[in-house]
Structures are given as C-alpha cells and as structure tokens.
C-alpha cells in the first residue's frame, strides 16, 4: 500500500474563531501543523503518494506544505473549493483517480494520535474496509460502531468510536455517483453485508473538535 489520503476539507465550524483564517489541518499542535504530523508519520511508514482534499481556505494548504519533497513523498491536492466540500465519501470518490486501483489508507486531518500507519496492511478477502476504532472519548460515550471478532457492525455491544483512520478498497467508492456523500452511512450500509472489518486501538487518540480540546492536547504535549 503506497497511497494514503488525508481528509482536510472540513469547515471547522466548531473550531471558530481559530478556523476563520486557517483551515483546521493547519492548526498547530506542539508548534507543528496537525497535518504535518500525519504526513511525517505516513512518510515514515513508507507511504509515497499522499492525497489531500481541501475546501475551506483550501489554497492555504498547498502553500504551507509544498509538493511533499521535504518529507520524501508526493503530495496531490484534490480541490473541492468549487463544490464547497463533498463530505468524506464524496471527497474520496472525487480523489479516486489519484488514489488508483489498490487499497489505500484514509486519515481524518483533524485527529491527533500515535497510531502507526501500516503500509503493509492487507484487506481480508471480501472486505471493502478495515476501520481503526478507539475507546469512546467523553464527547462520544455511546460510540459509533460495534466490534466483534474482527468485524464491525452498526448495532451491537462493545461499541467504540471510529478514529477517522481506515484502510479501504477502491471498490467501495469506485462506482458511486460523484457528489456530496458522508462516509458514515456508506460504511453502515456496507457493514450490513459483512464487508467491513476493524480493530481496536488503545493508544493516544484525540479528535481536535474544539479550541478547548486543541489547547488540552497542546498542554499534554508540553509535559
């Protein structure tokens, strides 16, 4: 697996006023834009092509990052500024020509974690997605999905929160109509057909949802 996508087209409403002048992925954690943490880790893990979609204040992202050569990767930008953000699945559908025909990794640009991306990961036979779940944080106590024997379902006990990190087959998106589409519903429909696997990751994971949470993370990094 050589390709990854960072979802960076969110509007960051809850992060205002910080996101009035900066897109969320460029907010800094420990003195470094959030998205750079992801790029560094992806590069370390052996990913070569990284697709970044962008909408809100999008142009600032390539300006800040360049072509990726300083990390030894190639950055590709999928511009959704005209569409006004296609949501996660819609963004992946649009970027699919850049992502190719092999499975790829997708990570939300607004999470912070020490999960190590795995470029050697292989999707199991018959699976269209493999999601990384995390223990439920305070702001999502009911969790998103249930995990049982390596398979993920929408309903069920042992519920966890979707980390925003997943490995996907391009077939999950390949034939979908271009346009706005959330990833949650698509995954839920696919789970009904036993085509989504997953695992629980118990390391550090934070969703940078609000200025307060960002401040907390920055605080925790200092110590």
């Amino acid at each position: 697996m050589k390709k990854a996508m960072i979802l960076a087209a969110g509007k960051g409403e809850r992060m205002r006023p910080l996101t009035d002048s900066l897109p969320k992925p460029l907010l800094e954690v420990g003195g470094k834009p959030l998205i750079v943490w992801h790029i560094e880790k992806l590069a370390r893990a052996g990913f070569i092509d990284i697709v970044i979609n962008m909408a809100h204040l999008g142009n600032l992202i390539p300006q800040a990052l360049g072509d990726g050569s300083k990390w030894g990767v190639k950055l590709h930008f999928s511009d959704e500024q005209n569409e006004g953000a296609l949501e996660s699945a819609g963004g992946i559908v649009k970027a699919l020509p850049l992502l190719g025909n092999e499975p790829f990794l997708v990570v939300n640009g607004d999470v912070w974690c020490d999960y190590e991306f795995d470029s050697a990961f292989e999707l199991g036979d018959g699976l269209l997605a493999h999601l990384i779940l995390v223990p439920n944080p305070e702001h999502n106590t009911k969790g998103d999905f249930a995990l049982s024997k390596g398979m993920i379902s929408g309903d069920g006990k042992s519920r966890y929160t979707f980390s925003g990190i997943g490995y996907y087959s391009p077939n999950l998106f390949k034939w979908l109509e271009y346009g706005k589409r959330g990833l949650g519903d698509l995954l839920r429909d696919t789970m009904l057909h036993d085509a989504v696997g997953g695992e629980l990751y118990s390391g550090i994971w934070r969703d940078i949802g609000t200025p307060q949470r960002l401040a907390e993370i920055n605080e925790s990094i200092k110590t």
Binding site: D125, G126, L128, S169, P170, N171, K174, H193, A195
Partner: peptide
C-alpha cells in the same frame, strides 16, 4: 452472488 459482487463494490 450478492456476497461475491460486494467484493467489486456493486450490488
């Protein structure tokens, strides 16, 4: 047939 087709992302 349904299960096999889902591998191709089509229903």
């Amino acid at each position: 047939i349904v299960s096999e087709a889902i591998k191709f992302g089509i229903y």
